[in-house]
Simulated scan of single mutants.
Amino acid sequence: MKKLLILLFAFGLFGTANAQFGIRAGYSSSNFTDFGTDPLAGFHAGAYYNFGMGFLSVEPGIQYSQKGHVRIADTGTPAVKNDRLNYVDVPVLLRVNFLPFLNVFAGPQASVLVSRTLEFEDGNTDTSTEPIRGWDLGGVVGVGAKLPLGINAQVSYDVGFQSVNYYNQDVKNNVLKISLGYDF
């Protein structure tokens, strides 16, 4: 047991020696699976902590992310213009650094629904989060590049693993994200 604790301490100490804290923000395009709607443009912003040992690194993070869809394909009255769901995402990514400037990544992501804005064509809005599950589990895959001056760029895709139970319909969040970040 003592050896295991020493090994974990040494790993943590070594990992933090190569750690980088950073911020990231960018454009999001989200939609639900199998729902007959158009993607909704939004944004995401947050922070991350990357620690690793050269070829592999682990990057937990936290970010605010807008998800949702545009125009439900129905004839309901009044017609829905768009439905914006605001989440706090907590991804834990494993990065594989192929070259000093290029990496690919994947990992799980937990999300918590914090607010919602449902806009109707007649100008009215609804902010109730009751018709939607309050949490979501998914995965993230993507590719990133390190640029000069501590700047990084990445393209990622968030895939929902479970239904968000949107008005008792089996739909999942899917989000394309294009981001710029800065390592401190």
Rank of each mutant, 00 (worst) to 15 (best):
T125C: 08
V104H: 05
R84C: 03
D136N: 15
S65P: 00
N31P: 02
T16V: 12
N82R: 07
P60N: 05
R133Q: 14
A145R: 07
D136H: 14
P100Q: 08
F9S: 11
L4P: 02
D170G: 06
Y167A: 12
L7M: 10
F21E: 04
G12S: 11
T127E: 14
I72E: 13
G15Q: 11
V58E: 02
A153C: 11
L113R: 06
K3A: 11
K146H: 12
A110H: 11
V92D: 01
D89P: 00
D183C: 02
L7Q: 10
A106D: 06
A110F: 15
K172E: 13
L149F: 15
S115A: 13
N168S: 15
F51L: 04
Y49F: 13
D136R: 12
T117L: 12
S57G: 03
D89K: 02
D170H: 08
A10S: 12
N18G: 08
K172N: 13
L4M: 10
V141K: 14
S179P: 00
Y167G: 03
G42K: 05
R116L: 01
N124G: 14
L5M: 10
T117Q: 15
N103D: 12
F184H: 03
G22R: 02
G22S: 02
N124F: 10
L137N: 11
I151A: 12
N103S: 13
G61Y: 03
F43E: 00
D38A: 14
G142D: 03
K3Q: 13
I72F: 10
V164H: 08
L5W: 13
F105C: 01
D136G: 11
S128F: 05
F21I: 02
A25H: 04
R133K: 15
R133N: 12
I72N: 12
L176T: 07
I178W: 13
P78G: 07
T117A: 13
R84A: 10
V70L: 10
T129K: 15
K2P: 01
N152I: 04
Q109F: 02
Q66G: 03
I6F: 13
V104Y: 07
G12Q: 08
A25E: 06
S115W: 05
G144D: 10
F98A: 15
F35D: 06
K81H: 09
N50L: 04
L5F: 14
F11C: 07
Q162W: 09
R133M: 05
A145D: 05
I23E: 03
N82F: 08
A17L: 09
